Computed example of a mutant assay.
Amino acid sequence: MSKILIIAEHLDGKLNSSTARCVTCAGQIGADSIDVLVLAADPAGIAAEAAKIDGVSNVLAVARAENAHALAAVCAPQIAAAAKNGYTHVLAPSTTFGKDVLPRAAALLGVAQVSDISAVEGAHTFKRPIYAGNAIVTVEAPAGQILVGTVRTASYAAAAEGANAAPVQALSLDVALPSHTRFVELAQGKSDRPDLQSASRVVSGGRALGSSDAFKVIYALADKLGAAVGASRAAVDAGYVPSDLQVGQTGKIIAPELYVAIGISGAIQHLTGIKDAGTIVAINKDAEAPIFEIADYGLVGDLFKIVPELEQAL
């Protein structure tokens, strides 16, 4: 019998779509019960959102002032305590949040973590990418202990809203929380464009743009498409755009319906971050660029000529 606990990711009172993607993964494991744990100072609104996800059995809401901000040192003891209530699996998204908090919870539970689950082979057998996505390895975890794992959310579609809301239960955890870690501030980029990790369309630029000023053509096309803006690591390292726009192994792993790569050669680290995209369009003057090997559509030519023409046509 599999009983799965999913750790909800949220910010500013809103549930992140990565939680619904974890529910899809949990459903493939064949769970008898899928519960969502919400840790917040005021979890009511977030819990109500989680309750609407199709496949969720129960939502467990923990209201503590210490949970006003998602600090790994504070969340992990609560996750470990909740997991001991008969759960066989504990899952969280393989995002900055999940990568920060779940290893701590695994350590408190005395188990090893399975990271970046991209496919389910069995209740304790999974596939995950290694070597920057160049290979996929099958991992089997011991069946006699709690399985703690992060889910590669780009590999799963978000579970839809169900017809009926799952029950929300207030959960009280008798656990002492550490005080050595405190929240100072959250520096967060503001943009009118869609969020890069959840956008259905993304337009990315690479080093071939040549300058931050030239990135205007990327922003203009993205605005025409209602898309988020991304960039290769080379463009970020060159200072053309801020690091929060970086797509790839050391940036954001995304799976939009449409990904447009402009002036991006296609290093393996970048391709790792976009391999789950629905349709990939590449524009590059080098016909031998690796990006064309995975692109569904390719345009060989000068991006400064092609992109304005494409924008005009749109």
Rank of each mutant, 00 (worst) to 15 (best):
S118P: 01
E121T: 07
A107I: 12
T96I: 14
D116H: 09
S118F: 06
S94R: 13
R104C: 04
V101N: 02
L108M: 14
V120C: 06
G110E: 13
E121N: 13
P103Y: 06
S115T: 15
E121L: 14
L109C: 06
V114C: 11
L108C: 08
V114P: 02
V114L: 13
G98S: 04
F97T: 00
V114M: 08
T96P: 02
S118G: 06
E121W: 10
A112R: 13
S115F: 08
V114T: 11
L108R: 14
L91T: 03
I117C: 08
A112K: 15
P103V: 02
F97K: 00
P93D: 04
P103Q: 05
A92E: 03
L109D: 04
P103N: 09
A106N: 06
F97Q: 00
A119R: 13
S94W: 13
I117N: 03
G110C: 12
V120M: 10
V114W: 08
L108D: 12
P93Y: 05
V111W: 09
D100R: 00
T96Y: 14
K99N: 05
D116A: 09
A107D: 13
A92V: 03
V120D: 04
S94A: 15
S118L: 08
E121K: 13
A107Q: 15
T95D: 11
L109Y: 07
L109F: 07
I117L: 11
L109P: 01
S115Y: 09
I117S: 02
S115L: 09
K99T: 01
D116G: 03
Q113P: 03
A107K: 11
S94T: 12
A119F: 10
I117Q: 02
D116P: 01
A105M: 04
V111C: 08
P93Q: 08
V101G: 01
A106C: 10
D100N: 14
A119V: 05
G110K: 13
T96Q: 14
V101D: 00
L109S: 06
V101F: 10
A107P: 07
T96V: 15
T95K: 14
A106I: 06
S118T: 07
Q113I: 12
P103W: 08
V101M: 11
V120Y: 06
F97N: 00
L102F: 04
A112L: 13
S94C: 15
S94N: 15
F97P: 00
S118M: 11
T95N: 12
P93M: 09
V120T: 05
V111E: 09
A119K: 14
L108F: 10
T95V: 12
D100Q: 04
A106Y: 07
P103L: 07
E121P: 00
V120A: 08
D116M: 05
V101E: 02
R104W: 06
V111L: 07
E121Y: 11
R104N: 07
V101W: 03
V120S: 04
L91Y: 07
K99M: 10
V114D: 04
P93H: 09
L102Q: 01
S118H: 05
A107N: 12
A119P: 01
Q113V: 06
F97A: 00
A112H: 14
P103I: 04
A112S: 14
D100W: 02
V101R: 01
